[in-house]
Design a protein around this nucleic acid. Structure first.
Lengths: 228, 228
DNA sequence: CATTGTCAAGAGCAGTGCTCTCGATTTGAA
DNA sequence: TTCAAATCGAGAGCACTGCTCTTGACAATG
């Protein structure tokens, strides 16, 4: 195993530095990332950036992928830190971790969950990392169901929805009753809505005690999905 | 009462036409609205637009205000079309109306509820029209409570959250028990999350039966807020 | 009739993403 | 070791953006 040639290493370093500078710009200037500003910060000329990223969208895609992974790591780590049997503790920890990450990286969260850029289409390889937070939530449900500490709801689902939910279960590789999976999706939707409302300024001026509000709302959803 | 001078009338017409053209551009090109493109479509020169809107943000604000009002009209009309006592019917109608409006005007919805534009700060006069959809939802709860057909939940709220909810009730001019108002906010958050997930492409490839999914999830929230 | 205010047009500034070309440098094989 | 190929940064340039300022034409008002 030979070491990678020097050229490849400095190239990898350049790519990392560009991403780091771009992330910094993202945090201050918001989603309208300027390639020229990034190049300026690096003491380069704008056209040099194109040696490393074929377009601005590709740079954004790289940042999006890293952000998905960072969020996924945070949520999964928070979940893993609790005893497997402490379903409610895991639920709250996962939700809190997602919110904490979003509050710490608002611009990146907006990049992931904000309005889609008109011309931009998310590449195929973002769907797997994007599924990690909801997968963590439904994983808690799966564990609770397997341990017999959680009884599936008896919601009556119309047939097409039942089939859709079954298919979604196969796609996520998690075997849950359709009605329970639907409630899990409700929890995930609610988590996204809570964070987005707070981060996008829709709670400005009202509800100053954000932590308590968030915990209460996630507790409501924990009840809804049937956590003991 | 004299008729407004001709000059003012043609000016108002111009403003309306600019907004109409801008809305059309918004629908096709997304949020990055180009003043020059709007001017081109109107056979004008870009600088002429500034006679009617002092900046691009002001034009966007005008569009945002109109969009809030259009959404508020749709939701309130759907709610008003049902018998006052049919709480569940009103709930579903209001939710469906919001979703239908969003699907019909995706770009305008993204303008309202997508990631905030970095430099842009929503003016004060947007908060009232922005509050109309959630007000419609909690109005259903208020009516149910007044009619004795809805019993407030017995959630234990921590004191600061209870106070926040009481204050929010005053702000919305709706007298609800804090715990019930919190659940109403959960319903509103869920509605926003459902629509955003669908509109922002997060359901692409899964859950093809969107109507059934949406109805089921809003029914879950109707249960959560305690609608009979 | 004369003045005042409003209007569209045009030029121009600073910024953007992106393409192309041109030398300089590094690389890997002959 | 030599040499061609690949890679790199720099610069010029294109088409586009929001926005400002000036100029000349027009209409409404006194």
């Amino acid at each position: 195993m030979v070491a990678p040639p020097l050229r490849a290493r400095v190239r990898a370093g350049m790519i990392d530095e560009i991403k780091a500078v771009a992330r910094r710009h993202l945090a201050t200037d918001g989603a309208n990332l300027s390639l020229r500003a990034v190049a300026r910060d690096m003491g380069m000329v704008s056209s040099a950036i194109y040696r490393y990223f074929p377009s601005r969208d590709d740079l954004l895609t790289a940042l999006i992928l890293e952000a998905y992974d960072a969020l996924g790591d945070a949520v999964e780590a928070a979940d893993a830190a609790f005893d497997r049997g402490d379903l409610r503790g895991r639920w709250h920890a996962a939700c809190r971790a997602a919110r904490a990450w979003a509050l710490a990286h608002p611009a990146e969260y907006a990049l992931l969950y904000g309005s889609p850029v008109p011309g931009y289409a998310a590449p195929e390889d973002t769907v797997a990392p994007a599924a990690r937070p909801p997968l963590t939530l439904v994983g808690i449900l799966r564990d609770g169901l397997a341990a017999g500490r959680l009884s599936p709801p008896e919601d009556a689902l119309p047939e097409p929805l039942r089939a859709d939910m079954a298919e979604l279960g196969v796609l996520l590789s998690v075997d849950l009753p359709p009605a329970l999976l639907a409630r899990g999706m409700a929890g995930w939707t609610q988590l996204f809505g809570l964070i987005s409302f707070e981060l996008f300024g829709r709670l400005n001026g009202v509800l100053p005690h954000r932590d308590e509000y968030f915990d209460h709302q996630t507790a409501l959803m924990a009840d809804l999905v049937g956590l003991p």
